[in-house]
Simulated scan of single mutants.
Amino acid sequence: MTLIDIPTPGFPGAGADFARRGGQLRVSFTARCQLGCWFCHNEGEVPPRITHHNRAVQPRPRVMTPGDYLTAINTMTAAGIRRVFFTGGEPLLSPAARPVLEGIPAHRPDEYTTTLITNGLTLTRDLPWLAATTLDRIKVSLHYFSDASIATIAEGKTGDIDKIKAGIEAAIDAIPTVELNLLLQELNAHEVMDIIGYARHLGIGLQIIELVGTDHNAGLGGGKVPSGDIAAHLRSIATDEQVVTSGTGQGRRVFTVPGARGPMTIEVIDASLGRHHTGQCGTCPARSRCVEGFWALRLDSAGTLAPCLLRTDLRLDVTPHTGDPAAFLSAVSAHLDAFTEGTLQ
């Protein structure tokens, strides 16, 4: 096992501290999703599970246009953000998804990368146009390996595991990189080895994530399962293991294991390896239950940008600035500087 601290490139000017920590921009197209997974925190928005149970409780209205999104993304990548993730809810349900993804300009991976995170239910439908975009990666959230487990984890919502698998397998031939992510929990513990085997069979990367507890999922569904036993299994078949403790969020174990296409990577996010915080976290009342630390900027469909999952009171309204890239970058930079210095009010 090798303990490493991987440096991440910085850049001068706005948001330098964020990029130096390996920060990412998470762009949420919609709060809606076909599923209602019990654990979903929806990145600070009302989770679909709650809306499915009570239609009177709705997420904030969508105000961001495709042009607004593209202004934000192009401005922040030009300023040095290296990783852009497109999320939801389920992002492919949003009418903004296609025009935004089709509008991302050609770019080199050393400039920045773009990743779509999806539940995979509509991949077979959407792949023809997705394949024509500059998207670098699709990451499919595969927290189940049977229709029965989908219904259990999504609280009765139906899903088609065969359709999801068909989308994953078709995407391998259409998108430069396809990966899976798996949220480890009691309700899918019996299928984790199946999902690991599936990833190895396809020869695609897998990230295994420990459960993030929030106000939305406390006391619900299946509880948290430590990743130690999974790490021990991977260690028994791995040709290499590295422990990465730099960058943002929690540390992770990176295993190189044999796959159908040769050596492949399985990552295990492990809270026991520590986390990374910044100035605002020093006096944060939510720190005792924070498991991510300084992780990502989240731009949502309601037009707010947040540097933290648990503190929705720290959101910045960017809608007054989406028509002016310079004003947008100035506002975001000032907000981020205050967050990293611990002076954000």
Rank of each mutant, 00 (worst) to 15 (best):
I117G: 05
P66F: 09
D270A: 02
L35A: 07
C290S: 05
K224D: 01
D68E: 12
R137G: 00
R82N: 09
M76F: 11
C308K: 08
G342M: 08
R21S: 04
H277K: 08
V57I: 14
A231E: 12
L187G: 03
I153A: 04
F255R: 10
L184Y: 11
E102Y: 12
A271R: 14
N217F: 01
E267F: 01
T340I: 08
M64A: 05
G221Y: 03
L35E: 01
P61D: 07
R311P: 09
L344H: 13
H335C: 02
P325A: 13
V178D: 07
I172S: 05
Q185H: 14
G228E: 12
R315L: 00
G293N: 10
G22E: 03
A334T: 10
I150A: 02
F39Y: 15
T122F: 06
K157E: 05
A260W: 07
I138S: 03
H107S: 03
D215F: 05
N181G: 04
P258G: 09
G247I: 04
D324I: 06
R275F: 00
I164V: 15
G222V: 02
G323Y: 11
P307D: 07
T75P: 10
A132P: 11
P226H: 12
M264Y: 13
G22T: 02
G23I: 02
S94C: 06
T30M: 09
Q185G: 08
K157H: 11
L187K: 11
Y112V: 00
L234N: 14
V332Q: 03
T134V: 00
L3G: 09
R62V: 11
E210Q: 14
S149V: 00
R252W: 05
F39D: 08
Y69V: 01
S333C: 01
L344F: 07
L92Q: 02
D270T: 01
A231K: 13
V27F: 08
V100G: 10
G219Q: 04
V291M: 15
H41E: 04
A326P: 02
A14P: 15
L116G: 05
C281E: 11
L305P: 02
H233D: 03
T87Q: 12
A271E: 12
G279A: 06
L305D: 02
E191S: 07
T118K: 05
P91L: 07
W295N: 04
S272V: 05
A199G: 06
T245Y: 03
T65D: 04
T118E: 02
F339V: 13
H53G: 10
D215C: 00
T319Y: 11
L299Q: 12
L184A: 09
G167K: 06
T239V: 07
L336K: 03
A260Y: 04
P320M: 09
L316C: 09
W129Q: 08
R252P: 00
F39L: 11
L314A: 13
P105C: 10
L123K: 07
T152Q: 05
A238S: 15
L182F: 13
